[in-house]
Amino acid sequence: MRGMGNEYIVLAHGAGGRESEQLIKQIFNIVRLRKVNNGIGLDEFDDGALIPLRTNFVVSMDSYTVDPIFFPGGDIGKLAAAGSINDVAVMGAEPFAALDSIVVEEGFPIRDLRKVINSMVKVFEFENVALISGDFKVMPREKVDKIIITTVVLGRLDNPSQIFLDSNVKPGDKIIVTGPVGDHGAVITALRMGIEAEIGELKSDCQPVTPIMRIAKHVGGVHAAKDPTRGGLAMALNEFAGKSNVAIFIDEDLIPIREEVRALSDMLGIDPLALACEGRVVLSVDPNYADDLLSSLRKNGFSEATIVGEAKDDHEWNGFVILKTEAGGLRILEKPTGELTPRIC
């Protein structure tokens, strides 16, 4: 890649010929985990990859279009890796392989492409996830906004009975949030509204949640897990309540929210509970395990993990999330509607 520092993507880079081959080989030479077991992977540069396996696996796919592509705490590459890893991890699986598809706008600086791919590959490598296959295309100027990355992540689920489904919340479960909510959504919204100055020290929480899920599986008692991305905590809790047909009671005063996120939300008139997280998990946990899990999480770096409420069987409110507000009144925490900020991930 030497000499490519000031170069830009041209249509030929996506034409599938010599230029494509050269660019992709150069940019992806940083990937060290290139196949699963003795399968077929990135080295073969073939039409697909082969995964020799005798187990269940969980698979998830997401496209990432975040605007701006670089933000405090990460970039679109880190997000594309962590985001799909998280979707697989919160199902209870252990991510092991990934595929990517990248669409770049003509004229995009190759230096920036390199930066985001580096971020993506770094996350995959740290998580021991092999990048085994992918695709790369170029679109003419203004036909796509800078870059879109799609990733597919596969995870092993050795014991299929230990899958964490949204529909498996049980009455009596304690609801645990593993860290402050809304950081990612607040950062991106503030950048998009042009009020960078208000962000201060705040960073996106974008990171893999695999360490959280390993602790959760180790302690046990987890019935359901979810990463509250678009729609934030409000959406995640509503999915739990709706799919499990339980009433979820939450005390807003207990929800960890950073001061900067509160201030930004107040200023913009948005609900921090509807702001996306990219590195938190909402867990629904058997009450007999909840305290152990909480102290394990807190001891292992998730010091702000908190029990924020519980699930109940309440014939009047099954399917609803009831929030005791900051001021002590009660309201329904509804699913967010409308576009809060488009293209946050």
């Binding site: 009671f249 005390d251 409110w317 609803f320 005791k324 009660l330 309201r331 329904i332 509804e334």
Partner: peptide, 17 residues
């Protein structure tokens, strides 16, 4: 009311947290 469940207020007023 639609966004924050205001229409269920009477039921909420009877609900204890």
């Amino acid at each position: 009311w639609y966004k924050y469940g205001g229409h269920l207020i009477q039921k909420l007023q009877r609900t204890k947290y």
